[in-house]
């Protein structure tokens, strides 16, 4: 793939539910190897945008290109093909309750690879170890804490070594230390595997640590208030709302840097 070609390309996108528009006329792209943040206040449509990007809902208008294919106009079979190429880590883990962690993580391997049982077992253990859940193979999701579920969900999303990962609220509901560990893991994925990662978050700490570029959604205009690097936006954005949104944490960091 051409390194300059964006992995995600959003053009004139208008989305919402039933007859209600949540966001309109969005334009942005995500470059390969980028950690891309979707920011904004509560209820502005971050999760809505992500659900549309991954093809769960059809947009009202516009197009979403993923790996150069228009997921919003694909038929079911094509959609499934595209979906197999990216991973999604859901906010609450979304693990299948009737299956053990190993079965959860191994499911896509069984579905889409020719690996034998032993190879799958090894790959599963590897992925669980990656998210610090080694030894929990035979636990049921119901026996795990919220943070563990989230990490197991990440392991499942990574099972096929996707080139693109979507992560909804990686740090919401986690203690600061676990959340920092997760941030490190996200950075490592990008640095070592070259994975492109789209995160939805309102945890300012993570935003400043991990994201290369962000879009900030504005509930009032139903559009993008700002695009760019958060550090730059904090110091240079002409929009006081944007600076204000980023500033509390930004100030703290600036002080720490001194």
């Amino acid at each position: 793939m051409n390194a300059d070609k964006p992995i995600i390309e959003v053009r004139n996108l208008t989305i919402g539910y039933d007859a209600r528009i949540i966001l309109k006329d969005l334009n942005f792209e995500v470059a390969p190897g980028e950690i891309f943040g979707i920011l904004g206040g509560s209820g502005c449509g971050k999760s809505t945008l992500m659900k549309h990007l991954i093809g769960l809902y059809e947009p009202f208008k516009g197009s979403i290109g993923i790996f150069g294919e228009n997921i919003s106009q694909a038929n079911e079979a094509q959609k499934r093909k595209i979906m197999q190429r990216f991973g999604v880590a859901y906010q609450g883990g979304a693990l299948f309750g009737s299956m053990t962690l190993a079965e959860n993580v191994g499911l896509v391997l069984e579905e889409y690879t020719d690996l034998n049982a032993e190879q799958i077992r090894r790959r599963v253990s590897e992925k669980l170890a990656l998210v610090d859940l080694a030894g929990f193979e035979n636990f049921m999701p119901g026996e795990l804490s919220g943070g563990m579920k989230k990490r197991a969900g990440l392991a499942r999303a990574l099972a096929l070594d996707p080139k693109l990962l979507f992560f909804d609220e990686p740090s919401a509901g986690l203690d600061p230390i676990t959340s920092a560990e997760l941030d490190k893991l996200i950075l490592r994925l990008r640095d070592q595997e070259g994975t492109t990662i789209v995160v939805v978050t309102h945890e300012l700490d993570s935003i400043f640590t991990i994201t290369d570029r962000v879009i900030m959604l504005d509930k009032n205009t139903q559009g993008i208030a700002a695009t760019g690097n958060v550090h730059k936006l904090l110091s240079e954005s002409p929009d006081p709302w944007v600076r204000n949104f980023l500033s509390r944490e930004g100030l703290k960091r600036a002080e720490m840097a001194k």
């Binding site: 769960l56 999604v88 979304a94 693990l95």
Partner: peptide, 17 residues
């Protein structure tokens, strides 16, 4: 219904299953 609430149905869809 519970699987839907837990986003398990969404997860199944995006796993292409």
């Amino acid at each position: 219904g519970t699987m839907k609430v837990n986003e398990e149905l969404s997860a199944l869809t995006t796993m292409g299953i």
